[in-house]
Design a binder for these strands. Sequence first.
DNA 1: GCAACGCATTGATCAGGATCAAGCGGGCGG
DNA 2: CCGCCCGCTTGATCCTGATCAATGCGTTGC
Lengths: 246, 246
Amino acid sequence: MNDQSFDLKSCAHCPIRHRAVCARCEKDELERLEEIKYYRSYEAGRPVVWAGDQMDFVASVVTGIATLSQTLEDGRTQMVGLLLPSDFLGRPGRAMAPYDVTANSDLTLCCFRRKPFEKLMSETPHIGQRLLEMTLDELDAAREWMLILGRKTAREKIASLLTIIAQREAALRQTAPKDGSSFDLPLTRESMADYLGLTLETVSRQISALKRDGVITLEGKRRIIVPDFEALIAETGDDADGGMLV
Amino acid sequence: MNDQSFDLKSCAHCPIRHRAVCARCEKDELERLEEIKYYRSYEAGRPVVWAGDQMDFVASVVTGIATLSQTLEDGRTQMVGLLLPSDFLGRPGRAMAPYDVTANSDLTLCCFRRKPFEKLMSETPHIGQRLLEMTLDELDAAREWMLILGRKTAREKIASLLTIIAQREAALRQTAPKDGSSFDLPLTRESMADYLGLTLETVSRQISALKRDGVITLEGKRRIIVPDFEALIAETGDDADGGMLV
DNA sequence: GCAACGCATTGATCAGGATCAAGCGGGCGG
DNA sequence: CCGCCCGCTTGATCCTGATCAATGCGTTGC
């Protein structure tokens, strides 16, 4: 169990309060949510649920990273979701998990028992509204991801993933990605491969190639420095506007 | 403009009334929707909107098939959505289309001007609830699709697509897919290739291979007969339960 | 200090699907 | 009726990324 540097009891001090499924809640709605919430922690690498399991809660990711993945009968696996802090896990109205959910790092969830959550959703407007908005955003992300999986080369896939991570990191700091900025990869080579539909060897080779070509610099295995952000985007294969939504 | 065999004026006789975004509406909600609705038709092959265009309406597909697709700067394209009757097009709260939308067959849309639709959504519960449900279903479908794009072989991709189409056809008739059942492919080889992240030549070859191996029979170029449905599913690479959600 | 393990890199070879190219067949317009 | 075009099929070859395999490197545990 990993210690938390924030107060787990209070929504008022919650680090994801303004982005999570509860972001739009009024005080009274928040109080009712607070009554049914509880926290769970998972160590890096632990399963949260397996596909097919009963799942009697929904949750927000508070800290850490979780992945959703699917596996074919012969063991090939594809990541189909990457949940960062404030992202929502589970589906109101469904009892069975359709995907394997894994704690990719040490993970803390803010859980709500499913039935009371559904009741609250049907009685108050703001949770459902926010959840719709978040689901539409996820659908957009999934469609961007489909383009990557279906049509991009290995090099473009890596460049796209680095761009996505850099942009999310920047969004957390409320800044645009800048030349010379650096960030940590929150994924192993194998997880990157599962994300991109590649093998880990190909991931490693393409990262080496981007390094060799000066598009990125490595600090250790995990820290990436991007000297020229435009140059990285040019490697993604997207057209000039960068495929930016919104 | 294609003639319609149903009365375009009345929601009461609408063929998609029970599955579309309006499915849960009460009489008064439906009346307000009816005030702001209008129909549009597109011939097969015509664009509905281009990515980046202003889009001042949202819509339900009434008849025909529309596709969402994205294109890289060098022309590679990936289909990211396939809209069948009752599916929803557009996003409340967003003015710009993020994808190219094309009429894949003759197409009729039931359109709502976006602003009044958003107002109605904020004032009545059932549209937003239904839209959330439909969006969550689409997200599930997108994730299934990501597994296909990222990890399946060409043969498995074709078998998966045939299975998906057969299941949707069967769902329309409210039956399970049966051995010996047949259906028409609603897509050209090229559209199938864009759906699956393949080239049209590979699609053609794999269909020929499945035919040669007795998994399917062809009647003309477009009509597929599946003598043994289990055998088709075995070709998809999914594990025994067929990856069925819900 | 060293063994063992997990993660990553790099090399050699292979194969699945892309690419380039030719030809088929049915529907449509002239 | 003929010629053309579009959607499709089939063949030959190429190339990207998978596969199999060995090694490096940092951390942990003895």
